[in-house]
């Protein structure tokens, strides 16, 4: 049973060069409690995808999907209430994702109040203290009366997470939630997220461009390029045995230290640059840059399913081939 399922999602924006597709024909399904990583280069449409799921995009965006359900309820384009009631989002920059003119207690109370309309003041206060405690903040009592600008980014991100889980969501979207943080804080926040996910059976969509985060926290991973989800699969499997040439290129671009380090000649780098949004090629978006491309690649490949792997490629890499390249 899927918690979230969306079929054929496309998002486009008007621009100087006509409509630009930020997300094209992407399908996504998520099981309860699953931690899904979405990885891709900047501009690949990860954030747009996540925000489209919650209906947070600018009104100028055109959103289309064939089917969208969340928690067994159908979500329509005009009504995102279902998912907003059951999901939360945290962003990259904690200093801008908290309302600067309200105290932390105030913001927590408000969210809690909306979900427990007839609760007493005491209950709300206890609940918010518990939340702050859950996200690992000591002395939560004194935090309630302070403003977001008084804290470091790490603390703010914890508060942000507390706020996000205040409405006991079934899904938490973390949009580059740790990118701006220091290394040590980063791993703390990641641990916190996976702990919360386990404890609360909360699914997480973690958007990132960092493989370390993927490998460490996620159960499954989707790879995005130019608005398309090119490959999805269990993280470990996907990273060790990529099917799509783009995934392989990404994996090979990870610098290695120590005995695993490859010599430079083995780096599997793609030619050329990521195309600008208004010049995404017809057919397979990777086509012109792909070392394995053939004539058929001017047609968009369908999703190929293989156990729990899905990928979009006419010439997927076989396990044996993968060994050869190594």
């Amino acid at each position: 049973m899927n918690l979230l399922q969306i079929e054929d999602l496309s998002v486009s924006f008007p621009s100087l060069y006509g409509e630009i597709c930020a997300v094209s024909n992407s399908s996504l399904s998520l099981k309860p409690g699953e931690i899904r990583g979405i990885i891709g280069e900047s501009g690949s449409g990860k954030s747009v995808l996540a925000q489209a799921l919650l209906g947070l995009l600018d009104p100028s965006a055109t959103i289309n999907f064939d089917f969208y359900s969340f928690d067994d309820t159908i979500v329509t384009k005009s009504d995102y209430d279902v998912i907003r009631q059951g999901a939360s989002i945290i962003f990259q920059d904690p200093s801008t994702s908290l309302n600067p003119s309200k105290t932390i207690g105030n913001q927590l109370w408000e969210t809690l109040y909306l979900h427990h309309k007839d609760a007493s003041r005491d209950f709300l206060k206890q609940e918010s203290l518990k939340l702050l405690h859950d996200v690992g903040l000591s002395t939560p009592e004194s935090l309630l009366r302070t403003y977001p600008h008084q804290f470091a980014a790490g603390v703010n991100q914890r508060i942000m997470i507390a706020l996000a889980i205040a409405c006991s969501p079934k899904l938490l979207v973390a949009d580059e939630a740790t990118t701006n943080l220091d290394m040590t804080i980063q791993s703390q926040i990641l641990d916190l997220l996976s702990k919360l996910s386990r404890e609360r059976e909360m699914a997480v969509i973690a958007i990132t461009h960092d493989f370390a985060i993927l490998a460490e926290t996620t159960d499954t991973t989707s790879v995005m390029y130019c608005g398309y989800i090119l490959e999805t699969g269990p993280t470990r499997d996907l990273l060790t045995h990529p099917r799509h040439p783009y995934t392989k290129a990404l994996v090979s671009s990870i610098p290695q230290i120590g005995p695993l380090r490859k010599s430079r000649s083995h780096l599997y780098a793609l030619k050329g640059n990521v195309p600008p949004a208004h010049k995404v090629p017809v057919g397979c978006p990777l086509g012109p840059r792909c070392p394995r491309a053939g004539k058929i690649c001017v047609q968009l490949p369908k999703y190929q399913n293989e156990e729990n792997r899905h990928y979009r490629c006419h010439y997927p890499l076989e396990d044996s081939l993968w060994e050869e390249h190594l």
Partner: peptide, 27 residues
């Protein structure tokens, strides 16, 4: 061997005044 040559060279950049007019025209 690659079937396609790299199609995404650097974009032709507009002169600032030209770019300004290009944007202004759309309003």
């Amino acid at each position: 061997m690659a079937l396609y040559i790299d199609r995404y060279g650097e974009q032709q950049l507009m002169h600032p005044i030209q770019g300004f007019w290009h944007l202004y025209k759309t309003n």
